[in-house]
Design a protein around this nucleic acid. Sequence first.
RNA 1: GCCGGAGUGGCGGAAUGGUAGACGCGCCGGACUCAAAAUCCGGUGGCCGCAAGGCCGUGUGGGUUCGAGUCCCACCUCCGGUACCA
Length: 810
Amino acid sequence: MSETKPRKTYDPTALEHRWQERWAESSLYETDQGPAKPKHYALTMLPYPSGDLHVGHWYAMTPSDTRARFMRMNGYRVFFPIGFDAFGLPAENAAINRGIHPYKWTMSNIENMRGQLRQMGAMFDFDAEVVTCDPEYYRWNQWFFLKFFEKGIAYRDYAPVDWCPKDNTTLAREQVVGPDRRCERCGTPVIKKDLAQWLFRITDYAEELLDFSKIEWPERVETLQRNWIGRSEGAEISFDIEGYGPIEVFTTRPDTLFGATFFVMSPEHPAVEKITTPEQADEVQAYVEKANRMSEIDRTDVTREKTGVFTGAHAINPANGQRIPVYAADYVLMGYGTGAIMAVPGQDQRDWDFAAKYDLPIIRTVEPPDGFDGEAYTGEGPAINSEFLDGLGIEDAKKRMIEHLAEQGNGRAAVTYRLHDWLISRQRYWGTPIPIVYCDDCGTVPIPEEDLPVLLPEDAEFTPTGESPLKLDEDFRYTECPSCGGRAERETDTMDTFMDSSWYQYRYLSPHYDEGPFDPEVGERWLPVDQYTGGIEHAVMHLLYTRFFTKVMRDLGLVDFDEPMSRLFNQGIILGEDAEKMSKSRGNVVNPQEFVDRYGSDALRCFLMFIGPWDQGGPWDGRGIEGISRFLRRALSLVSEEGSSNAEADPAELNRRTNRTIKKVTEDLKGFRFNTALAALMEHTNYLLAVKEEVEDSEWAEALRTFARLLAPLAPHHAEELWAKLGEPHSVHEQRWPGWEESLIKTEEITLIVQVNGKLRDRLDAPADISEEAAKELALSSEKVGPHVEGREIRKSIYVPGRLVNIVVA
RNA sequence: GCCGGAGUGGCGGAAUGGUAGACGCGCCGGACUCAAAAUCCGGUGGCCGCAAGGCCGUGUGGGUUCGAGUCCCACCUCCGGUACCA
């Protein structure tokens, strides 16, 4: 009669709850603020509180957690905070669509997500949590704004917005509908209107932002930022418009000035109306209005035939006094350079197209090579038809022309950026109020620092009128001038939410500090961020803004470094099972909760890390998680009573494999290669299980202690369970990461690969230190090699020590 | 168009210029079971072969090398970013 043991059930969620409670009780993840250890500030991009944790959050956060845990076990004191990016449009839309107040909606989402985050079992320091819609937080947005204002970095200017001329209101981008851009509410064609808005002078920092020498960021992000900043070197040249005065153009090709046969201004150029002759006025006005109504997409469609209108005016080419016609055309953009260009159809395809259509003269000023029969020639060549430039190469000609223009006083070398100043005004409710009042007597007056925060009123009418909702709140809108005490009006726009995320990493340090955005003493201990992780989608906006912010903070004396985050790693995107982007409409959204309930957090996080290289992302595979779950259960079974062995245990082999695994996992975790670290641990587990009953107790326990520590960053709950079952004191996460001995990894026996002409012919067992001669002899004596070399001349043989022999035959 | 990144079994993927396909999923076979699930053991790139073994094989075509998934050149496809930027 065999004894029937009750089957041991594996219940990962119960196990995980148990450990999460124990961790909380023992304050295991309270941040070590002591100076004894080197610091490591690990930061994962803060989530937007949309309601539930998405599998994408798990994909972003749990590998970051693994890395933070790894650093902690490697002797660092680690700060790993989390918070919520709580202002923004979705909350306002929920309010509009469902009548829930944005605050209520946001806070209940946060409450929900906090629970889900805890379930993740990550080592987040929840005491450091930041919620950006909290006045305790946004107060400092306002404080920064005031500092920026004082320093001249924040300024107010007119910037184009969509405007409904019938309703007299600004429209958000999504309120402009249809291909002909009409107002969502009244159907009136929308126009662009310049509205006074607040901007930050990020362009003042353009040059410094192009310098990445102080950070280790992915090449990809640097390239994206570089392209975004879009530095162009060239010249500004002043053209005199007959009867009006000078208008500047920017060009990267001042050497082609002799080929400028017409002049083009953007329809939005403020001078267009002024230079237009009376005969052309109607036509020009019609064209400008039409251009205003066109969507960005249509406007910038390269395949569209170029259009334009003659203004009746003429410009004088400063190089040769030529009188050239001035056009307004929408292929010239107001947002780049000066909004006006000199058109050189001989060397620019766009100008060529325009010239061909409007029958304008074409002059080449760069000699194309023989046989060139294209249109505009954009390549290299000596200058022609250019008087004093003739014969010069492009670079010399540019230089010479700039000198010439400078002497004449109508041009100079200039650099232009694609980057624009950062427009932070939003005509929205759910954001940080801009701390400014407008007084009839005193003008633009900043709210005094000590009066911050300017609270966002609770009861605003936040239904979409296109106006800033705060404008409808009279109690908020009308106030006293802080300067003269007279009646004044508040700024009713709110701030872009990118403002919130530009400096949150500083607030985490001391979220309740009330004498500044962060406690400088704490900052001293933790700044800057050592390792930032997040999605590539933030490569240009958020990551550029936060760099900018830090540089301004440096210039304000708040920090003494130049870059906010020393190292950055971008994870990829987790896709649906169909390898498409997850979306509700596709019905391929994976709900992490389902998988947590069924397999546990460790299984979910390990599976996400196992799926492939973290920076690559990839499709979810619901069945694949079974394999991870099996692995975790097998790992636990290493300490269970039952078991059988089917392999011989060689203590040296056990040692060798353990050391090899330590090395592999260590290097992989260092390099964010979680997938191969897990593969190595699986392989090791399989080996350990195979030899389980054959290993002596003390050696076995040692091997398992090492294994538990290696597993700890990846599967924190299971590793803790394993550690406890080994009878070790709480907690595995406070243990030192194991080291390895290189000499123990080496084997005495190797598999010698034998190739003939580079083709694998045999694998032979050989001593690791086999000499070249012996190896070659051994190779030639192989039966499998014989037929391939017989009767052929051996030309040479290559020996790679400890690896292979390649015999080259004729 | 321009700038990135990537193309490897049925699938996700692994591979300091040196054994292609580690690890996992799936599948096939076996053990256990009355049976199934779970679990455990074995197998699993394709073609030829009873077997031993052989040939082919990392998007395509060339090249460098004793040896190429890996390096170089040209091209194709997919993904991402960006675009009348003067």
